[in-house]
Amino acid sequence: MTNASYAEFDEFEASLYGVNGRYMLRSAQRRDWRLRVLELNGVALMAGQEGAATIYSGAGMPGCFNLFLPLSGHECTVVDGRRFDRHAIGWMAPDRMFHIDASRPASWMTISMPCELVCRWMATYADNADLSLLARNLVLTGGPSLGALLALTQRLLFIDDRQPAQLHHPAGEQTARSELLRLAFNTLLPLAARSTDTARHQNHRRILSQAMDLLAAARHTPILLEDLCAATSASERTIRNVFNRYVGISPHRYLVLHRLHHARQALKHAKAGETVTSICMRFGVWDIGRFAMQYRRLFGVLPSQTLRASHLGMQAPH
Rank of each mutant, 00 (worst) to 15 (best):
Q305W: 03
V242A: 00
Q315I: 04
A184Q: 04
V37I: 12
M281F: 04
P170E: 03
I100T: 15
L260A: 05
F291E: 02
L149I: 05
A59Y: 07
E75G: 14
P317I: 03
K271S: 11
G51D: 01
Y23G: 10
I207F: 00
N3P: 00
L225C: 07
L25R: 15
L117T: 06
M293G: 13
C64S: 13
R205A: 07
M122R: 10
T275A: 04
G48K: 10
H220R: 15
L298W: 02
L191S: 13
I279H: 06
V19N: 13
W91Y: 08
T141A: 06
Y23R: 15
Q163L: 05
R205Q: 12
H220I: 01
V139I: 08
A135Y: 05
D161I: 02
F65C: 01
R83A: 12
G284V: 03
I159W: 09
H269G: 11
L67G: 02
F283T: 11
L38P: 02
H201S: 08
A28Y: 06
A59G: 05
G284L: 05
S250A: 06
S5Y: 04
L167M: 05
G289T: 13
L267P: 14
S250F: 02
C76H: 08
P317M: 04
C119T: 05
A123G: 14
H262V: 03
F84L: 11
L255R: 14
E173C: 13
